[in-house]
Design a protein around this nucleic acid. Structure first.
Lengths: 354, 354
DNA sequence: CATTGGCGCTCCATCACAAGGAGTGCTGGT
DNA sequence: ACCAGCACTCCTTGTGATGGAGCGCCAATG
């Protein structure tokens, strides 16, 4: 919170410190650099800034910008490139995003597969990576815990298949080994009992109530229930909250990243470490709207040369997950931001409908 | 088939044409090259072959081997490296595999997660990539078509959730939009009907019989059934036969592959094209035991510098899928082969138990 | 006659050096 | 305040030069 305030304050002072001209120059510098990946020199800026200044004057401003930490030069006789702070200022106050047009939105919408939640999430991730040519990333909705429907199916003598429809309409399944062999009618009875009494409750609650309210239950039945609950809990937490990534391959083709093989490998290792990613993306789900993490801002070194653009999505007005894109810091933010934004919104509405 | 015979014949003649010494030299050459990735010169061979020959004599043999296409030199003054054909001969007749010891097998077994088929397959793939440090690959079992159990669940007015337990004990689910709104009891009735009459049949069969045998059914019921069947069919074919790959990242660290970025990208693109991979791996599932594809033998250019080591796995004596490893052609076959072999066997027994 | 030491040759890898170019900082003039 | 010009720095590219690794060939050897 404090940090948040700091940021606001800093932004305000920075906006003051940078006069109109400096901002304009920083803007075109970042734009040019994003466009062709080469350090931008004073000549180029003089040509493209639209300010009609000579390179020499521009060099003065650039020196100031460098002093303030917005830009840096790789070496003496190269142009300048934006620093993380430069990018930050750029996306915060200089960027002009152009919203997607209707046709693109429709195309995007058409690519979402609404058959079930998994498919929806997977296709959302795919759409993101496809449109941006970076890696798409989606945090799947949190399970609310509890179930809508439960079913037992006898596989073998002491082997049951537990089928669990979660509150949000997803289906989980699990094999249970039992002590004794239950008859089909016993299984039906047990399932009916659970469905009638406990649908919608959390497993914790059920566990508590099952002993209090249903003392008349036969011993073996309670055992069955306990086993079922344990399995359900596991199944629920199993895919409780997961990260779906797609299009990592796209990152292979990006010069900024694939130059350092080691860095690239670190990055891909990060993708395997779902939990670490989750922490990062969890932060984003607390805020409203699109959020941007530039470079190592997230505190993860493998993301040094990456930016993460995220947006939370919701079901019935409650934030349940996050979508996003991971790409090089040198990305076309004005394109990526609306794509992430719209995808989050489409995902929200697709999930709310069910 | 003809091709198969050709291969046998060629192998026989090759074994004849290469005398003891040439074979020994080829063997150590391949081994050395696999070990340190550098072209092997006559000096090195003289030292390591155990044959007590001078480099000059060895050069003569090497010239012969080159003429016959088993080895090649990258340029005039470098040592020799094995060609695809050289590798082929090596794995076919020179290789000495050392089986895994008991401890390793147990470790491997311990890492397989038997909770359900998906997890089992995923963990098998993981184990493969983990142990070999290459990419692990598993073709999931074919669905036999048909179901063991079916269930309807009402989500909303005209929205049903179809739950389908396939013959092999996996659970699929699908959302169905219906024309009319069915009552819960109607749904139970329909499910019961399907379960009683058609469990175990293929969907094709059901479709045929449903019209013939059940003419007394109400119109809306037949509609429901038809919708259910369509969805089932789709759900079944959906994950009908799929390829699970893991540890692709490992390939990033391998010099042989990561030197040409473009090739690497092609390779990763191949991984996304599941169908192409399926065709390749399908071939392997026709043969018994471990199979090895070297370089482009499979006909896929992206695999130029790769080898694929596969083995089929079975349920109740019937081959249902394939496990394998994709790595650089320069891989330690004597280690990879037993790993793939054992994994296939463990997977078979884990699946047969259920 | 198979084996071997020796010789000349080829080709690659590495390094040093020079030339050219891009861009900067600074200074003095407008 | 702006700008033209100049000296300076540093990267990039190209060009030889050098050394080493390995081969092919040949004549000598047992």
């Amino acid at each position: 919170m404090l940090c948040f305030l700091c940021k606001i304050v800093r932004m305000a002072t920075e906006t003051q410190a940078l006069n109109e001209r400096a901002q304009q120059l920083l803007k075109t510098l970042v734009e040019r650099y994003i466009a062709d990946g080469q350090p931008v020199g004073s000549r180029a800026l003089s040509k493209f800034s639209g300010l009609d200044l000579s390179p020499a004057s521009i060099r003065n401003v650039m020196a100031d910008l460098e002093e303030m930490g917005f830009i840096a030069s790789p070496h003496t006789s190269a142009g300048r490139i934006p620093t993380a702070r430069g990018y930050r200022f750029f996306v915060d106050t200089l960027l002009t995003v152009k919203p997607l047009d209707r046709i693109e939105i429709h195309q995007l919408e058409g690519q979402l597969q609404v058959e079930n939640t998994q498919k929806l999430v997977a296709s959302a991730s795919h759409v993101l990576s496809d449109l941006t040519r970076f890696a798409g990333i989606v945090v799947t909705p949190r399970r609310s815990g509890g179930f809508r429907h439960i079913e037992f199916l006898k596989l073998a003598e002491k082997r049951l298949l537990l089928i669990l429809v979660t509150a949000d309409g997803d289906v989980q399944n699990r094999i249970i080994q039992t002590e004794k062999s239950y008859s089909p009618s016993e299984l039906v009875e047990a399932a009916n009992m659970l469905n009638k009494n406990f649908a919608g409750c959390t497993f914790e609650e059920i566990r508590r109530r099952i002993h209090v309210e249903l003392k008349q239950l036969r011993e073996d039945m309670t055992q069955l229930m306990a086993a079922a609950l344990a399995a359900s809990d596991q199944a629920a937490s199993d895919s409780a909250e997961d990260v779906v990534i797609s299009g990592e391959i796209n990152l292979l083709g990006i010069e900024d990243l694939s130059s350092n093989m080691t860095k690239l490998r670190d990055l891909f290792n990060l993708f395997e470490h779902r939990t670490t990613l989750l922490q990062l993306l969890d932060v984003s789900s607390r805020a409203q709207g699109v959020q941007i993490f530039i470079g190592g801002e997230a505190g993860l070194t493998p993301l040094d040369e990456c930016s993460v653009v995220t947006a939370p999505y919701e079901v019935d007005g409650k934030i349940v997950g996050t979508v996003g894109v991971i790409g090089p810091t040198r990305m076309a933010y004005e394109r990526v931001i609306p794509i992430v934004d719209i995808t989050a919104k489409l995902l929200s509405s697709a999930l709310t409908q069910r």
